[in-house]
Nucleic acid binder design. Structure first.
Lengths: 339, 339
DNA sequence: GTGAAAGCGCTAACAT
DNA sequence: ATGTTAGCGCTTTCAC
């Protein structure tokens, strides 16, 4: 494959420029010549050299996906695989490539960032960090590289896309309220991450909407691990809530185990709703009512948005997109009916 | 960042070549000048343009990771996330980048392959396909692009790396045999994939080693899904095996459910050993004895091997590497002791 | 509609 | 030890 434009040109009996025009689908080439050149290209299996092309077009057709905090999340959570899947699907459709960068937390992040962004490898970046104050974000803005953030962010003019964490949580808790529960506890996620904060907001909004007071003692914060869920449930049990809204899949598993160990039945003794980051909890506990999130679509839409940003750069300071994908409640027996 | 070598050269009062030498750490530059140039580079935050560099060096410092059959596996199986994690770790250490390609099975694979490999984007590729007859492999060999296959492959001269599926399975089954079991059934994986075949081989070898006959009816094939595991167990129950070796994590969960639904206790009625693709089954069922595989290290070592292939191309037809990482048996109560 | 020629930013001989 | 020069393979004016 050390065939170049020049080679094709010779074989087709035309000039480099003509072959280039054919490849890039320019108008001004006679149908006859175009046909012929394509023939040669196909016969030889020629492919233009990406680097050479990038050098002049300043485009690579590569987008980056940056996932900080890989260690902790990647194993436990099928969120990232699904997200990646959605992203690659869309990349495949549009003939883009995907460069994946995983970090182990903030250490060396700054330097990694420079390596990734500074080398000009990327046309744009998807950041899958829900940290509300991620240091990458100001850097990216400064560099003027198109990027889309998965999650929410307080900053201005940042394109974000997220599943509806607030709405999902609210739906879940309202469901419990409608079943008659009034002492609904929650094991929330980390409040420094947007989904953690949002799901708690939803919990609060549900109470407000139904004029139910929020008992702060019924709110504990977990860390999205099974252990955290178990510990959270442990702290909540003495307060004898009748229902429990757990802000993540994996924590729900932990909470379930604690409940069972305490001899409590679900939903007879404690009703339970989880946030289904993708089905782990539901797989373990088929009866679990959960909020379902379209993670694959999230990845796909993030990519679509990014590509549109890349291909038609928005007019100076056009307003940023903030896409929110609806979540839905999958009701199963774990909520029971309040006796 | 539209600063170029030329710019740095001017600022430092030297020529392009000198700056280039400094960047590429060539010997022949006076310490004084070298120092000075680095200063300017740091001050300006200059980074060489990757495409321009690649165009002349014919190196991109990007490796590809190709995962066919993404749809089916990616969700269910934490194998890929862990593998990716190991790979990125190693890439980070060596300042390589990772391009991820996921396919949905063979459709369009050929064309995707050309896009990925033909464009010259990649210095090498890791193929995470255990299909014994993956069509990518001959193509890659023909192209002369360095690649490492995760899994096993019948072809000559192919660098492969895998966890010890045969040994792990054999260890697991021998453990059951030592506990006194003689009717050990297995739910095997797909026999068209190397790990599927290998784990069954291990099962057979364990029997041979202990001069135990293999009852073919006790071997059923699953598809690595929970459903497949449940169905497999269902087919095996009438044959009343005293022990069960399940060739995958997820299938073990399915099998467990079937056993329970049938009112059978583990290990009292049926002893169980699983193949822990990463802990899903063990998480669900903490008492489950499993074969543990070092998937993260698998990714890391695959990358190390690939990079060494890239950086010092082996002498014409040096013998290929076939690395096998040991697995170990994590014994928990699910094996019980044969009464 | 087509070709000739100028570069994109870098590295690597080749001079000095 | 440093500068000069010639490309790497492509796109893109600019002529014709």
């Amino acid at each position: 494959m050390s065939l170049t434009l020049e080679g094709i040109a010779k074989l087709a009996g035309v000039s480099r420029s003509t072959v280039s025009r054919v490849i890039n689908d320019h108008k001004s080439v006679s149908d006859e010549v175009r046909e012929q050149v394509w023939q040669v290209i196909h016969d030889t299996g020629y492919q233009p050299h990406a680097a050479a092309r990038s050098l002049v077009t300043r485009r690579t057709r590569i987008i980056g996906v940056v996932i900080p905090e890989a260690v902790t999340k990647l194993f436990t959570d099928p969120f990232f695989p699904l997200l990646l899947y959605g992203i690659t699907e869309t990349c495949n459709i549009h003939s883009y490539h995907l460069m994946l960068s995983l970090f182990n937390g903030p250490v060396g992040q700054r330097e990694m960032y420079r390596r990734i962004v500074g080398s000009g490898h990327l046309d744009g970046v998807i950041i899958a960090s829900a940290h509300l104050d991620d240091p990458l974000i100001p850097s990216l803005r400064a560099d003027g590289l198109p990027f889309v953030l998965i999650g929410r962010h307080p900053g201005e003019g940042i394109h974000t896309i997220d599943v509806d964490n607030v709405g999902g949580a609210q739906m879940a808790v309202e469901h419990l309220i409608r079943l008659g529960h009034t002492r609904i506890a929650t094991i929330a996620g980390p409040q420094t991450m947007s989904h953690g904060a949002d799901r708690l907001t939803g919990y609060r909004q549900a109470h407000e909407a139904h004029r139910l007071p929020v008992d702060k003692r019924l709110i504990v914060e977990g860390d999205y691990t099974e252990k955290g869920g178990a510990a959270g449930a442990h702290r909540l049990l003495p307060l004898s809530p009748t229902a429990l809204f757990v802000a993540s899949d994996v924590m729900a598993i932990g909470a379930l185990k604690t409940l069972r160990a305490a001899g409590l039945r679900v939903p007879q003794d404690v009703a339970l709703v989880g946030f289904d980051d993708v089905g782990v909890a539901a797989a373990v506990e088929p009866g679990l009512t959960t909020v379902r999130q379209p993670i694959g679509r999230l990845g796909a839409m993030a990519t679509d948005l990014l590509l549109s940003l890349i291909e038609k750069p928005p007019a100076e300071e056009a307003t940023a997109h903030h896409i929110v994908l609806p979540t839905r409640l999958v009701v199963r027996e774990s909520c029971g009916v309040m006796r």
